[in-house]
């Protein structure tokens, strides 16, 4: 069975409250989801709490997985991102133990190693076609969970302006991804 199939099978079984499947799913996916939480929250303790919340939600909501049409890993990542973004926006942590989060290159080396594959290659290529600042803003929003207001502050431009140019960038990006 391929990795994707193993994860999908485990997720379906978690939907039926199969604890062994939950353990397997955790083993296969927790590193990836922890990376997602770490990048959004930039704080190890917060990311660990978010990861806990994410798997509690996965356990409770796995039964809904099959109705959404996403691949299993995308669904899991989406759950983890939403939990982490929610936590970030509620807590706005600026703790002393914040990790320096480099949004330009979230996993140096590792990313380069696999960048030639499928989705990663495609999105990397399409991000490359965007203006550098706009590609950076897309990464800040997606990987860092930053809102339009955060981006407006960061780039010191009005919120509506950020929104307009980011929406245009998204249309270009999607156009490229669909080619």
């Amino acid at each position: 069975m391929s990795d994707v199939n193993i994860i999908e099978d485990a997720l379906v079984r978690v939907g039926l409250k199969d604890r062994a499947a939950f353990d397997l799913l955790y083993d296969r996916t927790s590193a990836k989801l922890f990376g997602v939480c770490l990048r959004v929250l930039g704080n190890r303790a917060q990311a660990e709490d978010a990861l806990q919340d994410a798997y509690v939600r996965i356990w409770n909501k796995a039964g809904m997985y099959q109705v959404n049409g996403l691949s299993p890993m995308t669904w899991l990542i989406t759950v983890a991102r939403n939990v982490a973004i929610d936590r970030k926006r509620r807590h706005r942590v600026t703790a002393a133990d914040d990790l320096p989060v480099d949004l330009r290159d979230p996993t140096p080396g590792a990313e380069a190693r696999v960048i030639a594959q499928g989705e990663q290659a495609r999105i990397a290529q399409c991000m490359g076609e965007l203006d550098a600042q706009k590609a950076d803003a897309v990464k800040r929003a997606y990987l860092g969970g930053e809102s339009y207001a955060d981006l407006a502050d960061f780039y010191d431009i009005p919120l509506n302006t950020v929104r307009t140019w980011l929406r245009r960038s998204l249309i270009s990006l999607k156009d490229c991804l669909s080619r």
Partner: peptide
């Protein structure tokens, strides 16, 4: 595809 490899918790 933007998410890189993970970090074991």
């Amino acid at each position: 595809g933007l998410d890189g490899d993970g970090t074991p918790p």
